[in-house]
Write a protein that binds this DNA or RNA. Structure first.
Length: 195
DNA sequence: ACTTTGATGGCCT
DNA sequence: GGCCATCAAAGTT
């Protein structure tokens, strides 16, 4: 059963739990989402929309949820799912996938056979995601999120790579499938959520 | 036009 | 776990 619009209208932290296990594909190449991070908008110092910053880059986050927010950093692309209510610039960073489809294509794009999708930049490279996909609708475009596998145990901990954001560095807004081999970095979980 | 700063990845120990 | 290359975006002048 396909997802519908209301799926993306869930509160951001709740949507994080529901995104885990769903299948993300671009032109049929992709895998199950196994790791995400929430970026909670104007009051989240680690978010690009901190302070309500509204620029050409962050604009899509101010619109309706369910769209792709793609940005570049260190010559890499990162994919976020726009979440929350329209006018509230929140998003969820997709940090890792468990490859399911088009693995040959991924190896070709990555130029190697391992570490295909265990990181936000790596998975974008493997799936061929660039700023060309900025703003694409994740229900009705070649870049889409669909049904996947059930998830039992979700691990929770602080987000990665935001050490210079004051108190925000400690917020428990990173979620991953407990024990999954494709998570970008192994770290001890602060707590486990049983679904 | 110039300066600062990374929501990283790859490789090293 | 640590180091750092390298460039686009954002902010500043």
């Amino acid at each position: 059963m396909a997802l519908d619009r209301s799926f993306f209208e869930m509160p951001t932290l709740e949507l994080c739990l529901h995104l885990l296990g769903k299948e993300l594909t671009h032109d049929g190449v992709g895998g199950y989402i196994v790791e995400v991070e929430a970026y909670m908008g104007p009051h989240d110092r680690a978010a690009h929309s901190y302070g309500g910053r509204r620029t050409k880059r962050t604009e899509v986050m101010f619109g309706p949820p369910g769209k792709a927010y793609v940005y570049t950093i260190h010559q890499q692309h990162c994919l976020n799912v726009v979440s929350g209510k329209e006018g509230h610039p929140e998003a969820i960073l997709v940090r890792a996938l468990q490859p399911t489809k088009g693995i040959e294509k991924m190896m070709e794009r990555r130029g190697r056979a391992d570490n295909l999708t265990n990181g936000p930049g790596r998975l974008c490279q493997a799936l061929g995601i660039t700023k060309a996909q900025y703003g694409w609708d994740l229900l009705e475009s070649p870049l889409r999120i669909g049904p996947g596998i059930p998830v039992k145990r979700v691990a929770v901990g602080p987000r990665i790579g935001i050490e210079n954001t004051g108190e925000a560095r400690h917020y428990p807004w990173r979620f991953w499938i407990d024990g999954n081999e494709h998570v970008s970095r192994t770290r001890k979980a602060q707590k486990i959520i049983e679904l």
